[in-house]
Amino acid sequence: MTILPIELPGLTALTSLEALRQRAPLVHCLTNDVVQEFTANTLLALGAAPAMVIEPREAAQFSTMADAVLINIGTLSHRRAEAMMAAILGANQAGVPWVLDPVAVGALDYRTAFAVSILSLKPAAIRANASEILALAGEPSLGRGVDSADDSFRALPAAERLAREYGTLVAITGRVDFITDGARVWSVDDGDPLMTRVTGTGCALSAVVAAFCALPGDRLQHVAAACRVMARAGRLTASASSGPGSFAVGFLDHLYAMSREDLQ
């Protein structure tokens, strides 16, 4: 039975954001080629530290030094899969949380098989759109590449099942975000459609989720806070933007200056 979600309070998100700024976690990002710069700038704006080490012979070693690891399969290749597997194994050995962003699973066989195969390696969290979550759970979906044609609430039962089966957290992002550990559900009803017109906002969110996973305390709250902070920055930025170009710059500025008043 699907658990009724509860809206995450802004002050709860603020508590997690302040902890992030104080800790400044190092996030090892194995992410896709399209979004590396935007992802790094997003993490820096929030107060985290990004690193992109993708050589397989270094990935395992570096993941043990990081505070969190992001596995984003957007531009997956055999060599990158090798590096990702090495980073995951290194992170698990060192007790470092890692986050899966299963970009375009369901639409393409190779990446779908790879994403499903690493679920047993226990990601701390999964961040994806509704179609990707449904496909990851082995259910029919309406995704088209990185775009979702499914509603996030429709994917919530699949997300809860994934969370329980793999002992992870699942964040489904869309018009409304839902974040669950299989027993609890937070929702985030914020953001703006203009966020979908800028390459990398979703992928950057996954990196931010990884950064928040490095914090001590209630990880479900922290992941929901990551979604709330990013969505609120999107809403604030869109109101003062003339289009995607100005939005991309303003978004980083709003993340950097995010305050108590903004989150309330």
Rank of each mutant, 00 (worst) to 15 (best):
R79C: 02
P97M: 03
V53S: 11
I54P: 01
N32T: 13
A130Q: 03
A107H: 11
A137N: 03
F114I: 14
V103E: 08
N32D: 13
L26V: 06
P50C: 03
T31H: 12
I118G: 14
L43N: 10
T15L: 14
A137F: 00
I133T: 11
L119K: 08
D109F: 14
A137P: 00
P50T: 02
R80P: 10
L119Y: 06
L17N: 03
P102N: 08
E58H: 05
V105G: 14
E132C: 08
Q93F: 03
I126V: 08
N41Q: 15
T42L: 10
R127H: 00
A124K: 13
R111T: 10
K122I: 01
L14T: 01
L70Y: 08
A66S: 05
L76G: 14
A40V: 09
T42S: 15
I118T: 13
T42M: 11
A113F: 10
R23L: 15
G106W: 13
P102M: 07
A137G: 07
I118W: 03
G47T: 02
L43Y: 04
E82K: 10
L76S: 14
G74K: 03
A115V: 02
A104H: 14
P102C: 08
V96Q: 01
L108N: 15
F38T: 00
T42C: 13
D109G: 07
A68G: 04
T64W: 05
S16N: 12
D109P: 10
V103I: 15
A19I: 03
V103L: 11
A130G: 06
V99D: 04
E37N: 15
P102V: 05
H78W: 06
H78V: 13
Q36C: 08
G74E: 09
E139D: 00
K122C: 04
A81G: 11
N129W: 02
A59M: 07
A124D: 00
W98L: 12
D101H: 06
V34A: 04
P56Y: 07
A137H: 01
G138Y: 01
S16F: 09
Q36A: 12
V116F: 02
E55T: 10
L100H: 14
A51F: 01
V35D: 00
L119F: 13
A115E: 02
H28D: 02
A45C: 02
I133V: 14
N129G: 04
A87E: 06
L44W: 03
V105R: 09
M85F: 12
A135Q: 06
L142P: 01
Q93R: 13
F62H: 00
I71R: 02
R80A: 15
L20E: 03
A51R: 00
A135P: 06
T75A: 07
V34H: 00
Q93P: 09
A83E: 07
G74T: 05
Q22E: 14
N32L: 13
A113D: 11
A59Y: 01
A87R: 09
R23Y: 14
A48H: 00
Q36K: 10
E132P: 14
S141T: 02
A49D: 01
V27P: 00
S16E: 09
T15N: 12
S63A: 15
H28V: 09
G47M: 07
A91P: 09
F114L: 15
L89R: 12
